[in-house]
């Protein structure tokens, strides 16, 4: 008996593929709803003092207590794992090679930037990121050399969180994600969407590709951490409340990035074309 010939609601029936998909979606929806409910139970009480309340509202951080725990956990794990590995990486790998790895990681992410540029309704930016990908994957030897920058296509940031921002969706509460760092409800969802937008996740799985994916992701983490070794060390040393400093910097930067995308009204075709 095929799945399609089964009647929905039959005991032990194998439901059609669409029904199974709908079921999974419903299950995920329930899990997300439960997660949000659990998160809402962790919300800190609002202060009563008007000035403190204004600061509380401005920070968009109703789960501060939980976020600070995640921050503490992340910095502790970082101290004994990622940071030493990143320091060893900096010691062992010359800067030009690290730069080449950084270029490759950036180029590999260019399709995600492209799809988000399209989603944000910015064809000129999408053209730039597409050109970057093509140029760097070919003339740039698989992305290791950022030739596109010299050809007039410098890198620009974009991700699904920013695309959602350009659609007018607010950031929602600030979140500090374990081992990932500062984020928000919108940007966290955006991160999930970006995984779906990355074509590398749709390449048929073979042993070599799995190895490549692991190497790519691990290299991305270590290379990214190495880029910020001195800055994060200084932040830990100089900030009296590093958590609040990171939160403020992150929120300001995300807003500025979203604004820069919204305000990018460059013509779709280059000036020489007209």
């Amino acid at each position: 008996m095929t799945a399609e010939s089964q009647q929905p609601g039959q005991e032990g029936a194998i439901r059609p593929a669409t029904a199974r998909h709908t079921g999974r979606m419903a299950l995920r929806g329930c899990l997300v709803a439960c997660g949000l409910l659990a998160l809402s139970a962790c919300a800190d009480p609002k202060p009563t003092d008007p000035e403190a309340l204004a600061e509380y509202e401005e920070a968009h951080d109703p789960y501060e207590s939980l976020n600070r725990k995640m921050y503490g956990l992340t910095t502790t794990v970082d101290k004994y794992t990622t940071r030493p590995v990143a320091k060893a990486y900096v010691w062992a790998v010359p800067r030009p090679v690290r730069q080449a790895f950084g270029n490759m990681i950036q180029t590999m992410n260019e399709p995600v930037v492209f799809f988000n540029d399209v989603g944000a309704g910015k064809p000129r930016r999408a053209g730039d990121s597409f050109a970057r990908w093509v140029i760097n994957m070919t003339a740039g030897l698989g992305g290791f050399i950022d030739v596109a920058k010299y050809a007039g296509f410098p890198h620009h940031d974009n991700d699904a969180g920013l695309t959602l921002a350009t659609w007018g969706i607010s950031s929602g509460p600030y979140l500090f994600l374990p081992m990932m760092g500062p984020s928000s409800l919108r940007d966290g969802i955006g991160y999930g969407l970006d995984q779906g937008l990355s074509p590398w996740n749709y390449v048929p799985r073979g042993y070599g590709l799995v190895t490549f994916n692991w190497a790519y992701n691990m290299l991305g983490i270590i290379n990214g951490r190495a880029d910020h070794l001195n800055d994060l060390d200084q932040l830990q040393r100089d900030a009296l409340d590093p958590y609040a400093t990171i939160r403020s910097a992150y929120q300001q930067q995300r807003k500025a990035l979203a604004d820069s995308i919204k305000n990018d009204h460059r013509a779709t075709v280059p000036a020489w074309y007209n």
Partner: peptide, 16 residues
């Protein structure tokens, strides 16, 4: 820790 402040963070600014 992957602090997702993209290319620079606030101490880069202090430095800058």
């Amino acid at each position: 820790m992957t602090i997702r402040l993209h290319r620079r963070n606030i101490l880069g600014l202090v430095a800058a």
